[in-house]
Design a protein around this nucleic acid. Structure first.
Lengths: 156, 156
DNA sequence: GGAAGTGCAAAATATTATTTGGCACAAAGT
DNA sequence: ACTTTGTGCCAAATAATATTTTGCACTTCC
């Protein structure tokens, strides 16, 4: 097995596949200027090496009736490891929480949360998140509009 | 053309395709219990109606050398529309900024930013973001670890 | 009761992925 | 200098998959 040394072609592949995960191998090979066989071989290598983790369909939040997205800054009651672990454990079961990051700064965790509307968001925050005993306080930032939200990371 | 009324099968399709955007139509049809033809027809309808917006490969940040991800709270100098627009315009050209949301709360914008390491992050924040004249102040939350980061929205 | 529309399955066809074999080049060993 | 080995590529054959077509069953609405 070869080592992870990405050349210019691999970078192009990653960039294209990040923005279009459903491109056909034939089309992909044209865009990078190789024949299908080595193109496929490179993509497979990126997949098996774990550089490409997965493929996802992106759906339109608004169109499926998820009109509200927020960031929630969470401060925990205490900072022992067990407290964090208990919190994370409970958070992981809530499907409306689509991101949960442990962060530096004035709060402990930052969550990204989606909901149908403000009412169901309020219900979620009051009856689910604030009810978690490890949570000391929360502060919500409601997203008014999103100007950029790309899946494409600039591979260095 | 039919109206957007999603039944149970469509919900299953959306859930499966969000978590596995590369599943074959044959496999997909098995999982939802239909034959390939109507399965494909439904997926195409979800795509053309815009409910499925796009497909993306997800890559491993760490493995491509992007070790740092942060959230940046940005406060602008003034709140007139022109100020916001100028800021958004400049932000949109920076590939390291992968999300930019206008939010309620103590700051104006929340950015998600990636960088190779802390040094290059510092360079980015000092020489690019803080240099934007509309930016009054920034406050960074460095992500220490991520416990949840799903592409799968729970369709209501 | 019949017409039109919808959703489905089965089979035929078209497209695409994948494998195979072989060539060219470069690096390492003799 | 001459193998040897490995890598990366292409072209063509084969396998898998997507897509189209046809027709049937069921419902709804005249």
């Amino acid at each position: 097995m070869s080592i992870n040394k990405l050349d210019q072609i691999d970078h192009s592949l990653l960039e294209i596949l990040q923005s279009n995960g459903k491109i056909t191998n034939a089309q992909l090979s044209k865009e990078i200027g190789l024949s299908p066989a080595p193109t496929l071989e490179r993509v497979k290598k990126l997949e098996t090496s774990g550089i490409i983790k997965s493929y996802h369909a992106q759906i339109d939040r608004e169109k499926v009736g998820l009109g509200v997205m927020t960031f929630v800054q969470v401060s925990l009651a205490g900072h022992r490891k067990a407290v964090s672990e208990a919190f994370v454990e409970k958070i992981s079961k809530v499907p409306e929480i689509i991101e949960c990051h442990h962060v530096t700064g004035s709060c402990d965790f930052l969550l990204k949360v989606i909901a149908k509307d403000i009412n169901s968001y309020q219900k979620l925050i009051m009856e689910t998140i604030n009810e978690i005993e490890e949570v000391a306080s929360t502060q919500t930032m409601v997203i008014l509009s999103t100007f950029k939200d790309t899946q494409v990371l600039p591979v260095p």
